[in-house]
Design a protein around this nucleic acid. Structure first.
Length: 417
RNA sequence: GGGGGAAUGUCCCGAGCGGCAAAGGGGGCGGACUGUAAAUCCGCUGGCUAUGCCUUCGCAGGUUCGAGUCCUGCUUCCCCCA
């Protein structure tokens, strides 16, 4: 098609958010009038969202910012009780209602950083599909909703087909997930006038099933828009590190570590990530992406600070950047490094180096610490630890702190408490 | 309902004549080289109060000086026949 008329789709296209759309022209017309009501569903499977979820939040952000319409962040309080089989090899563990509710409360917070909630036309709202899904009556649901679904067609959906082809278990409860998600779309269309569902490309099947159901149940025209799944240029699935997922919530991953995640981006991903995960104008991004060789590190710092500012706040981002500068460029101690306090009495008595590194959370066990010492991976105040028997006392504290390092990038400060 | 096969290191895949903390990959972590990148090379990848001890091969028993390995029962999954 020709270039989109609406700012919303033009920006999404330029920045690389669009993977697939059911009807780009139709959606463009709605966006140009400011009549889009877009929803993205977030299941409550963990106590925080991670960077993989960030793309869809960014899409909602751009939509609100360009005045294209109203964002709906749907909490999956109901669907989480069922479990989405999309993109999964195995049945999800069934979570207790208590866990789901706790998760839901924990992940709500991050949305307000990127979206404005309220009563106005383009203000965001946050319903929970438990409101309607838990009230469904089985027989009524089969008659009103189930009759519109063809099992033949459901069996051809990727989320189902892949499991069947690989002879992997697919339970009946999971098989129903797409029906519930489709019904969500219809329900949101009725309650809020929603006309667009967005999500990762793995959600395409579930979304178009919702469009189909809407047509059969007589809603207005619905649209689908998906973004690419996040991978690094070397093909690895993104958002996971050794320590686990890259969480958006600060209590799950420190500001400093979040900043470091972006700072360590591969060269080949810098331009793409700047477009997706920052609000910097495209000409500025083009300038940064053109940097060659070691200079591209400047672009990575900008990426890290901007991306962190977006989710954690400008102040937190600056602090993390400052700490990184001190730690890596000046060999000094940054204020933002994680701190572990050890009781003064224990320090006076002397504590084993291995135990200290375990205490700091840098290694999982004495055994691992021992192996890392053998491999030269542990440092105390920038000096490689060579003797696993050594003990550390308050003499190791300089100006009240000792620096423990694991590898070149992970540092923890120890203080007497 | 009948017959045949499978389950291994708590990330995954996978070898394993009765002597096994258990081959080999992948992934991950550390080191060297670099630019806090990529690629490459090297090392590590059950726990502990550590020349030793403890816990691991679906579950529960049994045989044996000794069981991932042999026997019995059970669970789960797959294939073929009904």
């Amino acid at each position: 098609m020709a270039a989109p008329q609406s700012d919303f789709l033009r920006i999404l296209t330029e920045r690389g958010f669009i993977h697939q759309c059911s009807d780009l022209q139709g959606l463009d017309a709605l966006a140009a009038k400011g009549d889009v009501v877009a929803y993205v569903g977030y299941d409550c499977t963990a106590p925080s969202l991670h960077v993989g979820h960030l793309l869809s939040i960014m899409m909602l952000h751009w939509m609100q910012k360009t005045g294209a319409g109203k964002p709906i962040t749907l909490m999956g309080g109901g669907t989480t009780r069922v479990g989405d089989p999309s993109g999964r090899d195995e049945t999800r563990k069934i979570l207790s209602i208590n866990d789901i509710n706790a998760n839901k409360d924990a992940l709500k917070g991050v949305f307000a950083k990127l979206l404005t909630y309220g009563e106005g036309k383009t203000d965001a709202v946050m319903p929970d599909n438990a409101e309607w899904l838990t009230k469904l009556n089985y027989i009524e649901m089969l008659r009103d909703i189930g009759r519109h679904f063809s099992v033949n067609r459901m069996l051809t959906m990727d989320s189902v087909r892949l499991r069947l082809e690989r002879d992997q278990e697919l339970s009946f409860i999971e098989f129903n997930y797409m029906i519930l998600q489709a019904y969500d779309f219809v329900e949101l269309a009725r309650r809020y006038g929603s006309n667009l569902q967005m999500g990762g490309s793995d959600q395409w099947g579930n979304i178009v099933t919702g469009i189909d159901l809407g047509r059969r149940m007589g809603t207005h025209q619905l649209y689908a828009l998906t973004c690419p799944l996040l991978t690094t240029s070397s093909g690895a699935k993104m958002g996971k590190t050794a320590a686990g997922a890259v969480w958006l919530n600060a209590d799950m991953l420190s500001n400093y570590d979040y900043w470091q995640f972006w700072r360590n981006t591969e060269d080949g991903d810098v331009a793409r990530f700047l477009k997706l995960f920052t609000l910097l104008p495209l000409d500025e991004i083009a300038r940064l992406a053109a940097l060659q060789g070691a200079e591209i590190n400047e672009a990575k710092k900008v990426l890290a600070t901007e991306a962190t500012a977006l989710v954690r706040g400008r102040e937190a981002a600056e602090a993390a950047a400052e700490t990184a500068k001190k730690t890596f460029e000046q060999g000094a101690l940054g204020d933002d490094l994680p701190v572990v306090t050890v009781p003064a009495a224990e320090l006076a008595a002397g504590i084993g180096v291995l135990a200290l590194f375990v205490r700091a959370g840098l290694v999982a066990s004495n055994g691992e610490a021992r192996r890392q010492v053998a491999g030269g991976g542990l440092k105390l105040n920038d000096e490689t630890v060579t003797d696993p028997q050594a003990t550390v006392t308050e003499a190791a504290l300089k100006d009240g702190v000792a620096k423990l390092s694991f590898g070149r990038k992970k540092h923890v400060l120890v203080k007497a408490g």
